[in-house]
Design a binder for these strands. Structure first.
Length: 492
RNA sequence: CGGGGUGUAGCGUAGCCCGGUAUCGCGUCUGCUUUGGGAGCAGAAGGUCGUAGGUUCGAAUCCUGCCACCCCGACCA
């Protein structure tokens, strides 16, 4: 943050991204490979996301619970597809004790005598441990549905990591529900997708496409995977949340049956759904600019920062009196306010710093304002600055915060709309991919074609949009008939 | 896991080819002057040169192993 180096989004997008994460003090690399330290300011944003999502989960009837970090290998392997899908990225605990190295003073070695009889898998996702537990909870249709969410950390040993977007350990929530009927489980799956979409759009100000994944992109162990897909400012896609209809796969794997009203036994129907700290990456890449982070008011830990402009201590004292009054009024209205009264930094420095941190509104107040009963108000999203009468401040702040929230959404939507192209040829397709953006193209529906497109054109089907318009056409790649267009993009 | 690159004070760096105990900027600390868009002057502190070995009278510099990180692929939320 000491450096005034500026990195341009257009010149080098990933360098810019790293710069924002670092400069806005959101997170940093840790002493552990692939794992990040989420710094207080970054964590405050995550906490606001959590708080809003948590309330939405509860409003739809879910309760929070907590299941273990470790999963015995025998449970983990029970659902074959799920196990296979995650096997190559699992951290495994094999021992439970260390001891002093007899050959190397002050060093420790794994005690070979403390080998576990059964290895423990550090959860990459919790279906296995949860469904092994649900077996004991469910006997009758009266025990259903089970609607549980857990806030947790998971570990996926990825080859290449990036702060927030893909780290070895990450924070998330995972909902795991059990239902008596297929229909009810599907309704749940779709409902949670709607919850995610509403959160993304209303709170993150990030437009998303709701859709369904193709078989290739489906969650390991799911019958269907629904997702929300967002477009980042480089035109690449980011999967922002998923909701899975798991069918009876886990119920069968863990033998979870219930007796229905009719006295007959059947396997339970399942869903799972999750969003992660990856949303932090999505938030950054959707709104921020070359000046730094840009936060939607609904997620900003500090919504309004007040910078005093003073020459003497007496000036600061009288400004402070006024500021305290303003702060109280704004806080009464539910606005979070920070008074930056550090006396060792010049106003210009503070302006730049708070812009870097994405604070939506900045107020500047000096002796001139005190005399004129005015105050300067500057918005982060458009950089507009104006002097207003002090008497109108509270309502002005309220309406500007609302306006910024809306403007960020509209700006992102406009960007996505402009970068989404209807494509009917390989050439046009490649052009869109190279420029960055979504291509709406016909696809013949086969996994083989999808695979070939991925290899040759480096793009994947992000989703088949829900309520997609049916339109006869021909696959842009194979020429075979197709009944609808799907969303293609290069993805994170 | 493949290709490329980097590691020197809190951060960013020079020095490395051609071995002689480390340069500069930012930040930090003290003092004074400043404060409506990233302050100025003066002084000060701060470094096992990623790590472990090796060569040498002497290693940031040469050699070997290891580790970490970044970028590009493959894999993935």
């Amino acid at each position: 943050m000491s450096e005034f180096k500026k990195v341009s989004r257009t010149e080098n997008y990933s360098e810019w991204y790293n710069y924002i994460v670092d400069a806005a003090e959101l997170a940093q690399h840790s002493a552990v490979k692939g794992c990040m330290v989420i710094k207080p300011y970054g964590y405050a944003i995550w906490e606001k996301m959590q708080a809003d999502l948590d309330q939405r989960f509860k409003a739809t009837g879910h309760s929070n619970a907590y299941f273990p970090l470790f999963i015995p290998k025998s449970l983990f392997e029970a659902e074959e597809k799920n196990a296979e899908g995650f096997a190559k990225e699992c951290a495994v605990v094999t021992h439970y004790r260390l001891k002093s190295d007899p050959n190397n003073k002050g060093k420790l070695i794994v005690d070979p005598e403390a080998k576990l009889s059964e290895e423990l898998i550090v959860r990459p996702t919790s279906e296995a441990i949860i469904w092994s537990t649900y077996r004991g909870w469910i006997q009758s249709y009266r025990d259903l549905p089970i609607l549980i969410n857990q806030w947790a950390n998971v570990v996926r040993w990825e080859m290449r990591t990036r702060l927030f977007l893909r780290t070895t350990e990450f924070l998330w929530q995972e909902g795991h529900t059990a239902h008596a009927t297929k229909e009810e489980a599907i309704v749940e799956t779709k409902q949670m997708l709607e919850v995610y979409a509403a959160f993304a759009e209303d709170i993150m100000a990030m437009p998303v496409i709701k859709g369904i994944k193709t078989a290739n992109e489906r969650f390991a162990g799911a019958e269907d995977t629904f997702c929300i897909e967002a477009m980042m400012q480089d035109g690449k896609a980011l999967q922002a949340g998923t909701s899975h209809f798991l069918g009876q796969n886990f119920a069968k794997a863990f033998d979870v049956k219930f007796t229905g009203k009719d006295g007959k036994q059947d396997y339970v129907w399942a869903t799972s759904w999750g969003v992660s700290t990856r949303l932090m990456g999505a938030l950054i890449m959707t709104h921020s600019d070359d000046e730094g982070l840009v936060l939607p008011p609904k997620l900003a830990p500090i919504q309004v920062v007040i910078v005093p402009i003073f020459r003497s201590e007496e000036d600061l004292a009288s400004i402070t009196t006024k500021v305290m009054e303003i702060k109280k009024q704004l806080e009464y209205k539910g606005v979070s306010v920070k008074f930056d009264n550090r006396d060792t930094l010049k106003p210009g420095f503070k302006f730049a710093e708070w812009e870097l941190k994405g604070v939506p509104l900045r107020l500047a107040i000096g002796m001139r304002d005190i005399q004129n009963n005015t105050i300067e108000i500057a918005r982060r999203d458009t950089k507009e600055k104006k002097s207003i009468a002090m008497d109108h401040l509270v309502e002005e702040v309220g309406s500007l915060l609302t306006d910024i929230q809306e403007n960020l959404y509209q700006r992102a939507l406009k960007f996505r709309t402009e970068k989404t192209k209807i494509v009917d040829s390989k050439e046009a397709f490649l052009k869109v991919m190279d420029e960055g953006g979504f291509a709406l193209a016909h696809w013949d529906g086969s996994s083989e074609t999808e695979e070939k497109i991925k290899e040759e054109l480096k793009a994947t089907i992000r989703c088949i949009p829900l309520d997609n318009r049916q339109e006869a056409g021909f696959c842009f790649f194979t020429g075979k008939p197709s009944k609808e267009r799907v969303v293609f993009a290069r993805a994170y």
